[in-house]
């Protein structure tokens, strides 16, 4: 009888020690899943796709891209070389405009900045 009682006590302690934290964890997960599911459902109803990780939605193609000169200035530096990779374009007046069918006589353009 005493042996049976000890076994019963040990099994109860095991269940309490292992089972309760596991049950608690499962219950806790439900607590977070509820609002998450509700938020997902709200997005779906609104016809929008939820953004969970990235905020890059590709809106307007390249509109989020930014030019960064790193101190370069057209006025300070006329070197158009791209680190030796690509030659810069010939400035206006140094050669005739390209023969692309848009220009009538090949006359040099006149430019003025006010």
């Amino acid at each position: 009888m005493k042996k049976t009682f000890v076994t019963l006590l040990a099994s109860t302690a095991l269940i309490a020690g292992i089972g309760l934290p596991a049950w608690s964890a499962m219950h806790g997960a439900d607590l977070f899943e509820g609002p998450r599911d509700a938020a997902l459902a709200a997005f779906r109803e609104a016809g929008a796709s939820p953004m969970l990780v990235s905020d890059d939605d590709g809106e307007g193609r390249d509109h989020e891209r930014r030019l960064h000169r790193g101190g370069d200035s057209d006025e300070e530096d006329d070197d158009d070389s791209d680190g030796g990779n690509a030659p810069g374009p010939a400035p206006a007046g140094s050669v005739a405009p390209p023969d692309n069918g848009l220009f009538g006589t090949g006359a040099a353009p006149k430019v003025q900045v006010n």
């Binding site: 206006a92 405009p97 692309n100 069918g101 009538g104 353009p109 006149k110 006010n114």
Partner: peptide
């Protein structure tokens, strides 16, 4: 850059006005 040889100039500052006169095909 061959597309813009002979038709390239400096960048344009904020608030500035750029006027270019070109001989364009009718």
């Amino acid at each position: 850059t061959a597309e813009i040889n002979g038709i390239t100039g400096a960048s344009v500052g904020a608030g500035r006005r750029l006027e270019i006169t070109l001989d364009l095909a009718d």
